[in-house]
Design a protein around this nucleic acid. Structure first.
Lengths: 215, 215
DNA sequence: GATTCCATCACGAGAATTCGGGATTGAACC
DNA sequence: GGTTCAATCCCGAATTCTCGTGATGGAATC
């Protein structure tokens, strides 16, 4: 390895901070550049510390962990954040995911698990406990009706192109210009699209196209 | 441990099948109850084999892996399926997730990784490579209702109601009737909606409403 | 009590869409 | 060689949307 992974951590418990630093520094490919007891202090230090991975608890005093992730992401969109959680069946993990964290491990995880998670996160991946991964996949399936209801409405490529531009908010006239065809042709394609999608208006066509992920 | 984990595998390559059986049987807590060269045969054998975990390749001869998962899930909804994939950046993993598989590991994974994945899947969790996990989280974020964005746009209840009907394909006139207000009022609400959503057409408003889950 | 939203309603003009009719070309298929 | 179909184009009329420029009453906020 070329450069050690620069890790920065946040925890309100001093013993855990010291322990964390010790464990990380014991890794040949990592260096713990800082540990902080509160978020504000850590935020101030990020510029100087230039961490590759930020490790923080989802439960935090004063500010909740999700807000913390959001705050860090707002200022450092490229930050790679690994969350530690006591309960991995907490619905908060979903909020944390949406806030932009890219790893979720148990606070009780073994050292090897934690360091593996840090390495995974650092190398561009995500780390999760199997239980969290299962919840994420379940939720993912619920949100993704597209593939299950993979109804092929039989739209031609041209029709898809027209529909795509329509979804982007273009008018018939603009679509005609962008595709280099006449307004009448766009109209004609739209009629076909209405027919195939069984809709009767611009709005309904767009709605169906977006929700069924046809474009 | 009480009962060994019953594993069944599908692979079209005989050497890999034998290898797989050997590796699994070498685990103290697992037993490979069967390996099959094709899906039909495996399907017939599932009742007799009573497997806890099914391991199969996402690339399959004849039938694609996603269809295989669907077929198994259709008959055995509780089946726990671990997919093996050569490329973990393939968009097919999303299809497989939706089909119901609960693990995605690389075919080149080390033995310990594979057996850990089998154990994770067996104990009710999910297993993924960090790269796949990252892609899933990214997609997950994109799909989740934007909790922050909802407030950004600041749509009133009435505006949301109007927008909801619009998304369903209603015309202004129909919306007016359904809500018991005049056409002009609908028009007025729509203007506000355009303004708040920063869009300039019916289609774009619907598109944004659906994709940002505003309704 | 003034201000600020929200929801409601109104007129008019111009733009855009929808839908009823068509038509032609070229490629694919049997 | 005939048929089907996607893609292209056209006209005209009815309908619908968009937007400028208003107004009123009520509720909440300060």
């Amino acid at each position: 390895m070329d450069q050690p992974i620069r890790v920065i951590a946040f925890d309100d418990n001093k013993d855990l901070r010291d322990m964390f630093r010790m464990l990380v520094d014991a890794q040949p490919d990592m260096v713990c550049v800082a540990v902080h007891p509160d978020l504000a202090q850590m935020m101030r230090d990020i510029d100087a510390a230039q961490p590759d991975v930020i490790v923080m608890d989802i439960q935090m005093p004063g500010m909740n962990g999700i807000e913390g992730v959001r705050a860090i992401k707002a200022r450092y969109p490229a930050a790679r954040i690994l969350m530690q959680t006591v309960f991995d069946d907490d619905d908060k993990v979903f909020d944390a995911i949406c806030a932009g964290a890219c790893g979720y491990i148990l606070k009780t995880a073994a050292v090897e698990e934690m360091t593996k998670a840090i390495r995974d996160v650092h190398s561009g991946g995500s780390a999760m406990t199997p239980a969290i991964a299962f919840k994420v996949l379940s939720r993912f399936r619920a949100n993704e009706p597209a593939t299950t209801a993979e109804q092929e409405y039989g739209l031609s490529d041209r029709e898809k192109g027209v529909l795509t531009l329509l979804v982007k908010g273009r008018s018939y006239k603009m679509i005609a210009e962008e595709l280099g065809i006449s307004y009448h042709t766009v109209d004609s394609h739209m009629r076909k699209i209405y027919e195939k999608l069984h809709v009767h208006s611009n709005a309904e066509a767009v709605s169906k196209a977006v929700s069924k992920r046809l474009v």
